[in-house]
Amino acid sequence: MKSEFIDNRRGRGNTASMTMENKDIVERALAKLIETGDIDTLEPLLKADFVHHRPDSTSRTRAEWLAAARPVPMAEMQVEIRHMLAAGDHVVMYSKRRLPGAGPGIAVVDIWRFEDGLIAEGWEIIEPVAQAAVNFGWWKSRASP
């Protein structure tokens, strides 16, 4: 028996199939991005009304997010994908990224939500690896009563 879901926006579909397709899109997009260093290779994969959510509760449109990412030297970046999980219309990836000669790098969690075969929303949490120990004890800086 197939696992099925009902989604009022898209009708009926197979969850496992959709999950694998979404994961495959993210894997191929990242490979192309790292290979070419060209952030614009992602544009056709993003819905026209794509929204990128930031940890500070602000968000960017597709055009704003692409413009902000263009200066990043993607072709030089070393990306180690540690985990990639997919469920339904979401793909979550944990990676470590660094630029040669730029220190220990960053740890990143990306969450992508898909709609109609395109990325509709993205969330990105970035932590400098060198600050991980300090950030783990963020509550310790509170003044004691």
Rank of each mutant, 00 (worst) to 15 (best):
V51R: 07
V51W: 04
V51N: 01
H53M: 03
H53L: 04
R54V: 00
R54I: 05
R54K: 10
R54L: 14
P55K: 06
P55A: 12
D56N: 13
S57P: 00
S57K: 12
T58I: 02
T58G: 04
T58Q: 02
S59V: 01
S59E: 09
R60K: 10
T61Q: 01
R62K: 05
A63L: 02
A63E: 01
A63G: 00
A63R: 04
A63F: 00
E64F: 02
E64G: 00
E64R: 01
E64Q: 14
E64D: 06
W65I: 04
L66Y: 01
L66K: 02
L66E: 00
L66V: 05
L66M: 03
A67M: 00
A68N: 11
A69V: 07
R70N: 02
V72R: 10
V72Y: 12
V72E: 08
A75K: 12
A75D: 09
A75T: 06
E76P: 06
E76N: 10
M77I: 10
M77Y: 06
M77G: 07
M77F: 04
V79N: 08
E80L: 11
I81V: 15
I81D: 04
I81F: 07
H83N: 11
L85Y: 13
L85V: 07
A86P: 10
A86S: 15
A86E: 02
A86D: 05
A86C: 08
A87T: 13
A87D: 13
A87P: 14
A87Q: 15
G88I: 05
G88M: 08
D89N: 12
H90P: 02
V91N: 00
V91Y: 00
V91G: 03
V91S: 01
V92Q: 05
V92F: 06
M93H: 08
Y94N: 14
Y94K: 10
Y94H: 15
K96P: 04
K96D: 14
R97F: 06
R98G: 09
R98K: 15
R98C: 08
L99Q: 04
L99D: 01
L99C: 03
P100Q: 08
P100C: 03
G101P: 06
G101Q: 08
G101I: 05
G101S: 05
A102F: 11
G103S: 09
G103A: 12
G103W: 10
G103L: 07
G103K: 11
P104K: 15
P104M: 15
P104V: 15
I106V: 15
I106P: 12
I106A: 14
A107P: 07
A107I: 06
A107T: 14
V108H: 08
V108C: 12
V108G: 06
V108T: 14
V108N: 09
V109K: 04
V109R: 05
